[in-house]
Write a protein that binds this DNA or RNA. Structure first.
Lengths: 210, 210, 210, 210
DNA sequence: GATGAATGAGTCTTCATTCAT
DNA sequence: AATGAATGAAGACTCATTCAT
């Protein structure tokens, strides 16, 4: 009956939420994983909310209490994939600094391939779906653009270290080429299947040394 | 003022009725153009048949007499875009044989950019939509794969001519890299907007000569 | 193949719409009648679109091709009821000009009662639902307000003729009282059932002559 | 700053815990007030239980321990409004017995207007919502009917005192007219906004003395 | 052949109510 | 007794496709 309150929230509410923040994050990820699994199997718009609800083993209401619409869920699924990928790429580059373009590509591509295949779904497919969706979702497009811009800045710094004489425009051009190769490799391996990380790196080495 | 028209052209413009098969092809292309325009503006699945029907200035029944389903129309729209692109690329390569990778990229990328922008819609966007769709449409995936395989074979032959000592595997690896760069450039320019053909070609030159 | 066109519409389209304007209006009324029937039986928000669709013997798509949302249908159902009522009231007043307040009420109330009961649904109930809905629908509120304002202007003119010495404010006050009696009679008869037009008119006569 | 509170009042405001039954009534009214506030702002069916729960500063479970369903809450909100209004009207009539119809209306209408506007929500709107709801809720309809019937009996007694010669049927007819005017005034002021108590009373006086 | 009104299964989303904690 | 996360049935609306004219 009597309640200890602060800022309109009871002690009970403030100190012991019915569900812990960890549990909330767990549920969120459970839904996100289910969504990504469905998305890469069926496509973004072919996947129905019912599919995701079923796959996440939750009720419709529960899913909608974590994501307020299907668009929201699509955005979150793609954006978090991007985040995860970025974190992994950063770490990989820091751990073993590449000495040349084909060295870098030979380092990152296998890392991407390995990373993409985890958890039962293929991140490369999510990427293709995300690019497609970015054409109509301003929000997603902006998120993807800022991710790639940040990554390209890192690549530019690295490329500049390979050619001390290069100016900013040179570094930028090289970064664009490097990102192009990474993106293109994702497309080609997702579509063709037969373009391995080794193939691409080797091709670049051959042409570089020509 | 009443006017006698066919496929949007007046009797006086057309002068005489064309043969039936030609007329059919004109109609088909009229629909396909309308569809591509809608697709790149709205996305494949956001575009309704009604949108396409309206844009093509035909009736629902008429459109359905040329394409038996929306999937059919999507397939045709993407596949014919691919065909057109292929024809253009072949011609470009034949007209001015490239002497090196960066020469080739510097030749093809501007050609693609220029080609993509015609007719009021951007072919690069169609490409992204097509890749995305290819994940669930076996038929489309196969069509795209065979196109890229054929194109890669051409590239391999060309790359081999640059390095007479290279074996089949070398040529294949180089072809894969070249296709990767072309595909990646399409992605990057579609998503980021700021990656011009010149940037990419320049980046490749810088890294090749490193 | 060849078409006779004017302003972008073919001869066929211009001259012979698939469905005549009459037929369209008929369908519209068919839906509106079904909706009013459902509304007065179940209430505005308890009635589902499915109910209306079933009652109108049409498909969901057909109903939605005439009314773009449930709100639209609610508005149309109430607004057309208002229109019909207004037309009837105008005619009644014109046919037999009242000489006094109780004369007018004794004339209009039975007319309303008789009019309200037609077609298998009770217009008085629709009125109550409409007033309630007007609280949240700006559009409906405005429509109802302008109807009542116009009607009140007519009443003011009539009342002024009863008391030649009265100024505009007097006429306005009398018009407000007359409208009040009509509206109140609708409420009381809808809720209580036992308040007949005769009762009300008689009460007014008794009090007027007091 | 932590505070010990009960029903929104701090320990220091309450000083000592009230008895349990009183506390329960306080809670009930807290919920009812929240509900009425929501109802008149949003409408009966547009208001969600979540809205009421939030506005009452209680939990879902708590609200459901006082009212077993939304229908129950709607009924209680309307019925208690009716009770309050009745109490006030009784008192007003007892305090200053009216000598004529326009005297009575001139007395009651301002009292209703003043009463309706208190507590941050407008009782007139609740009335319209209640009448609308009464069409489908047997229980609510009966409650409203019995309220109005009792009130009409009081009015009949009063009207009879104005015309000693009148029989029961005369008194009943006058009571019906008086209730009609009160109900109609509520409708007109709620919908039109511009029909003040003074306007109505004045109109009645003008027509009565005609 | 051409037309476009009609179909109705299927989609996303909401919300009254419950019940484990 | 109190909480609020979870439930899932039900609702509004869409849209690919057909077929009577």
């Amino acid at each position: 009956m009597w309640m200890l309150v602060k800022n309109g929230r009871s002690f009970y509410q403030s100190c012991m939420p019915k569900i812990s923040e960890e549990a909330r994050q767990g549920r969120r990820n459970q839904i996100l994983d289910a969504a990504r699994l469905c998305f890469q199997k069926e496509g973004l718009h072919e996947t129905t909310m019912q599919d995701i609800i079923r796959a996440s083993d939750l009720s419709a209401g529960a899913v909608y209490s974590y994501f307020k619409s299907k668009d929201d869920l699509i955005f979150a699924a793609v954006a978090t994939s991007l985040d995860d990928l970025r974190t992994m790429l950063d770490e990989t580059m820091r751990r073993a600094p590449a000495k040349s373009a084909d060295d870098l590509i030979g380092l990152l591509l296998p890392a991407i391939t390995k990373f993409a295949a985890r958890d039962g779904y293929d991140l490369r497919r999510i990427a293709l779906l995300g690019w497609s969706e970015a054409q109509r979702s301003e929000r997603l497009r902006v998120a993807i653009q800022s991710h790639y811009a940040a990554f390209r800045a890192d690549l530019a710094k690295l490329a500049a270290s390979w050619r001390p004489s290069s100016n900013a425009a040179d570094a930028d051009a090289m970064a664009k080429l490097l990102l192009t190769v990474l993106l293109g490799a994702v497309v080609q391996s997702a579509i063709m299947g037969d373009a391995t990380a080794e193939d691409i790196a080797r091709g670049l080495r051959l042409l570089t040394q020509a």
